[in-house]
């Protein structure tokens, strides 16, 4: 399992796609927003947490189809399925690798991009914290969607259609937790819900995703 994690991270690094593309996409989304809504700093301040969350979510979505598609195409997934690792473990490890190569860089970059969005003062820390708690759920839910669509020739768009509705609760609680904290309100409830979604996703979705993968391999 550690070997699989190491391999996936190494592959992402060598291909140069994982880290770089997601981050660049995130930067572009955040750059585009002021062009759309205008440069007034108070408007930007108000929408900053939401935009940062949506940007991170979209950047995460961008690389989801890589989780299983490449391994499916070159036959690795067949061979992994016959290896002494349970399919649930494969899913969990590959979701973790996706989070480390895509989610974690976004979490670290978000407070910096917050400067561009004129994020209010305590917001930088809170964006970091909420994304840190929430992005593992995004990777895991995404891995489930990727497992559903792995056998399809052009599954990319379908994957987005399937995954984005599943992302809604995470987005709502994540952005809400950040916004509340910035506005000086108590954000325990959304923060707990966000953590709950992440924990439940990580605990349960590998089983659903593994079932989907087995169906797609046969």
């Amino acid at each position: 399992m550690i070997a699989l994690l190491a391999r996936d991270i190494r592959l992402a690094l060598r291909a140069g796609g994982g880290f770089g593309l997601g981050l660049a996409f995130f930067l572009i989304v955040v750059t585009l927003v002021p062009f759309g809504v205008g440069p007034e700093s108070d408007i930007l301040t108000r929408i900053a947490p939401g935009i940062l969350w949506i940007g991170a979510l979209l950047a995460c979505l961008l690389s989801l189809d890589r989780i299983f598609q490449l391994d499916f195409e070159d036959g690795s997934l067949d061979l992994l399925a016959t290896a002494p690792i349970p399919m649930e473990g494969i899913v969990a490890v590959k979701a973790l690798a996706h989070w480390i190569t895509t989610g974690l860089p976004l979490v670290i970059a978000a407070p910096l991009l917050g400067v561009l969005m004129n994020l209010a003062q305590p917001g930088h820390g809170w964006i970091f914290v909420t994304l840190l708690i929430g992005t593992p759920a995004l990777s895991m839910i995404g891995a489930f969607g990727a497992a559903l669509t792995v056998g399809l020739k052009r599954g990319g768009l379908l994957l987005s259609l399937l995954v984005l509705p599943l992302y809604m609760p995470t987005l709502i609680f994540g952005a809400e937790a950040a916004t509340r904290a910035i506005d000086g309100f108590d954000n325990t409830t959304p923060l707990m819900m966000l953590a709950g979604i992440t924990l439940a996703s990580v605990a349960l979705l590998p089983f659903a995703a593994a079932a989907a993968l087995r169906i797609n391999l046969r």
């Binding site: 550690i2 070997a3 391999r7 060598r14 036959g75 690795s76 061979l79 002494p84």
Partner: peptide, 25 residues
């Protein structure tokens, strides 16, 4: 199982490819 496809990763070296499958097993 040895399939039609070899399950190789293009960007990994021969030794790395092999070491991965060895570690998995």
């Amino acid at each position: 199982y040895g399939a039609h496809a070899d399950g190789l990763k293009a960007t990994l070296s021969v030794a790395e490819n092999l070491a991965f499958w060895a570690a998995v097993h």
